[in-house]
């Protein structure tokens, strides 16, 4: 089985600042659901971007399978209210899709009939589904989601992850996502990578949730996860100079 993406000794730095990621080894196999978790500023999104070649590696190497088809779901869109963009037009950005395909994609993600709706009027949940539909349009081998449930409430988050599982079953694509919604994500993943500037621990959800490194980072129960969830929302996006939790997760630099 050839890996879809492989990274060896990957380090990423933004400018002259200390690297956000150091010596990360990572492999993603076809059909796998892998979730990257970690505290705010741990480099989760950066790892995702480096694996897709969206940011250059400072050190190490990333190899992607030749011709890899990636469906990417961004964190959020920057839609100005003055941009008249229908759902259908959004799905057709840089792609030619006929009306049947558009309708099929929207019903597959549980958002049928939204074709003519303006993107700016969608609810958070609808927006995520439409972005997922767009990512599925290219028949991806790999679906990549960067904190897909930001701004969704708990039932919305759970529903969205159930949808991802369904899609994965139907398409057989690998799913790589970044998340802080630990209690929901864990059960759906084949493998969890716990990140804090480097890979703290990884394995099946049960292995990781029992690992001392993970417990030190996130606490023992949902309590820790909830605290992190709140904390993350206070700060918005990941930021490299956000202080890392040095007491709980030892860095080797």
């Amino acid at each position: 089985m050839n890996a879809l993406i492989e990274a060896h000794g990957l380090s990423v730095a933004y400018g002259p600042a200390a690297p956000v990621l150091t010596h990360v080894d990572f492999t993603l196999n076809p059909g796998e659901i892998v979730t990257i978790v970690g505290p705010n500023g741990s480099g989760k999104s950066t790892l995702l971007r480096a694996l897709l070649g969206m940011v250059p590696a400072a050190e190490g190497k990333v190899t992607r399978a030749p011709g890899l088809r990636v469906g990417y779901v961004p964190q959020k869109l920057h839609l100005d209210a003055n941009l008249p963009l229908s759902v259908e037009r959004f799905l057709r950005l840089t792609r030619r899709l006929d009306a049947d395909t558009v309708a099929h994609l929207l019903s597959r993600v549980g958002a049928p009939g939204l074709e003519t709706r303006a993107m700016a009027t969608l609810s958070g949940g609808q927006m995520q589904r439409v972005m997922l539909a767009r990512a599925l349009a290219g028949d991806p081998q790999l679906l990549v989601l960067d904190e897909p449930t930001q701004g969704l409430d708990q039932p919305g988050t759970a529903a969205f992850y159930r949808l991802i599982e369904t899609v994965r079953r139907e398409l057989g694509c690998a799913v790589l996502s970044v998340s802080h919604d630990l209690h929901v994500v864990m059960s759906a993943s084949d493998r969890v990578v716990c990140l804090n500037g480097h890979v703290c621990c990884e394995g099946t959800p049960s292995v990781v949730s029992n690992a001392p490194e993970y417990r030190a980072l996130f606490g023992l129960g949902t309590q820790g996860a909830f605290a992190l969830y709140q904390h993350h929302h206070d700060h918005g996006a990941d930021h490299p100079d956000h202080p890392h939790d040095h007491e709980t997760c030892d860095h080797d630099h």
Binding site: R49, M54, Y72, K76, L77, H78, L79, L93, T94
Partner: peptide, 19 residues
Amino acid sequence: WEALLTATISEDLALSLNI
């Protein structure tokens, strides 16, 4: 046009499409 529009809507989405 398409590339500009895509990059306007989301730079990350554009990057993922090699724009």
